[in-house]
Design a protein around this nucleic acid. Structure first.
Lengths: 221, 221
DNA sequence: TGTTAGCGACCGACTGGTCGGTCGGTCGGT
DNA sequence: ACCGACCGACCGACCAGTCGGTCGCTAACA
């Protein structure tokens, strides 16, 4: 199968994107270690040599993919958050947005969660990602504390806790046999997190938080 | 280096344990994928062939290691929990115990957290582990709800959230450049979690929770 | 207009190295 | 003499990265 050769106007941009797309698909099922460069090549309909013309190593592809994908997510969060001015409302919207984006892009979630499967050094990569989100959350919490909306607490640990909670909820959803709708977990998650930092019950009840049926399909006990 | 041959009385039990010990050491630094069977052999001071006399596959070694280690941890938790009768107190003690055990056995924590680095199928293994602890937590929460100590909430999601929080706190501690004392995070974590399920402030303040200095060394912002 | 040199993009067979697992063999105890 | 425990060289699969090519475009030149 002869491939259409790219026009010179492409400047190689197109195929770079094509490779990234293929890499996304490939990494998405299988994680880093279980994905061979040949798999990426197949997914992107390009040769291995072609890939190495555009990228120096397999790891470089993965890193770029992670970075740009995270950028998109953070960008999305920051733009939706911009509509709110109250710091607690911002935190709420941030959490909700992450949930919604992942709900709509299960594969993207996979990318983030199977990133770890590249042992040693990728742990560091994941670390940066976690930090990024935790810091985002922490900034909202700090603001909330500063303006007296919530009592003074250790916002560093709190942001870690919030992130961990969010992370785990998404992780379980990803691994569930018959996953429900991820967004359905939001009302409960929101209430738990807001309560945890001492937001008043009145404030928590403010958004009626439609009582969906339990978001988690079944429990294996 | 000729090794001491085991006495027949051993029935091979000793060397099985020796291998498991070596595997623990080896897996502990490097995760599953980055640890070669030869590494395990070296750590256990036995030959590769010797290992395959006792275990069918590398994966079998890892699974057994995970299982028995988790057993120990769960056992420890359950025995300390037995001293308490109030379900919320039990949950508190469970969290605290996990923190303390990990604090004292950093390597054990490593084993659990680098388990994921074996892509696909190990995710499932980790899943089981998470389930085990989440279910433990859920049972305490269910009891607390049943006896009216806390309001009725979705204990399934709540247990996932609690576990996620705990998990992330430990993970950050493991990856910190200059980790502080893990137990120091307990007071804050405890307060956050208890508040999240609606335990009264009075009850939360009950244990004076000695205000340690911040448990997290520094923040990279 | 026809010819050709140069080049950027891409191809895919191949290499070097790693690693899980095997297998014929050894050895001490009974 | 036999057997269970153990040894370690070896096999084969897999895979990241390389390298000598090919192809078609464009620009320079005749």
């Amino acid at each position: 199968m002869r491939r259409q050769r790219s026009q010179p106007a492409d400047h190689g941009r197109a195929s770079r994107e094509t490779i990234l797309d293929g890499a996304f698909q490939a990494f998405t099922k299988g994680g880093y270690r279980d994905t061979a460069v040949d798999d990426i090549a197949a997914a992107a309909e390009i040769s291995k040599g072609g890939i190495y013309f555009h990228f120096p190593t397999k790891e470089a592809i993965f890193r770029e993919l992670m970075r740009t994908t995270a950028d998109k997510l953070v960008g999305k969060v920051e733009s939706t958050v911009a509509a709110e001015s109250d710091p607690i409302a911002r935190a709420e919207v941030a959490i909700r947005t992450v949930l919604e984006v992942f709900a709509g892009h299960r594969t993207m979630a996979r990318l983030f969660f199977e990133a770890g499967a590249g042992g040693r050094g990728f742990q560091a990569e994941t670390n940066v990602l976690h930090d990024r989100f935790a810091n985002l959350i922490q900034s909202y919490l700090d603001d909330a504390v500063a303006q007296g909306t919530i009592p003074a607490i250790d916002t560093r640990i709190t942001s870690v806790v919030w992130f961990g909670a969010l992370d785990e909820v998404v992780a379980r959803w990803l691994l569930a046999d018959r996953p429900g709708r991820l967004e359905d977990a939001y009302p409960t998650l929101r209430a738990l997190l807001l309560r945890s930092v001492g937001v008043t019950e009145a404030r928590i009840a403010e958004v009626p938080a439609p009582t969906f049926p339990a978001a988690f399909p079944e429990q294996h006990r």
